[in-house]
Design a protein around this nucleic acid. Structure first.
Length: 156
DNA sequence: GCCAACGTTGGC
DNA sequence: GCCAACGTTGGC
């Protein structure tokens, strides 16, 4: 059984359209610099599925589904001076941050906006809908996953 | 642009 | 270890 997740990205930085244009429709998910989010990345397995969420967008919304195709490995952007993700406390000898590779599985025909998810029965405990939620990598319960997939008319 | 809700940093 | 100051996220 795959596990389910939600990955946030600001479309001005990297959108689902950017992913669709990427070689093999695959990208590394670099730049996570929060320990809780990193630990979730470490928990991912190949075959897990994740919602692709556009944050800081108009409107903020779930826009697609991606599949984990490579488990966590060191985020080498942290070692590159000049990278926006550089962190001098991370090194090749002692990597602090990790990334996974994800492949585009499906673009939702209609984005599922944050607003449209509020009030949906069964999503009361969803992390994304928690007030003040900022986690950029979140686990999603199977029941939540199925509700949203059904709402979106998507087949996984 | 505002600001609530966090997470991190660093003085003590 | 406490906590104030600061920086960031992200909805609105």
């Amino acid at each position: 059984m795959p596990a389910y997740w939600l990955l946030k990205s600001e479309p001005s930085t990297f959108s689902i359209e950017d992913l669709a244009r990427s070689p093999k429709r695959t990208t590394c998910w670099e730049g996570v610099r929060n320990y809780q989010a990193r630990n979730f990345l470490r928990s991912m397995s190949v075959g897990d599925l994740a919602f692709f969420y556009h944050s800081n967008a108009d409107p903020p919304a779930i826009v697609g589904i991606v599949e984990v195709v490579k488990a966590a490995y060191p985020d080498y952007y942290a070692w590159q001076p000049g990278s926006r993700y550089f962190d001098d406390k991370s090194s090749e000898q002692n990597p602090r941050w990790v990334m996974v590779d994800v492949r585009l599985h499906k673009v939702l025909r209609t984005p599922r906006s944050l607003e449209s998810l509020r009030g949906v029965k069964g999503l009361e405990k969803m992390e994304l809908l928690r007030r003040g939620s900022r986690l950029s990598v979140q686990p999603v319960r199977e029941s939540e996953w199925e509700i949203i997939v059904r709402l979106s008319g998507a087949t996984v």
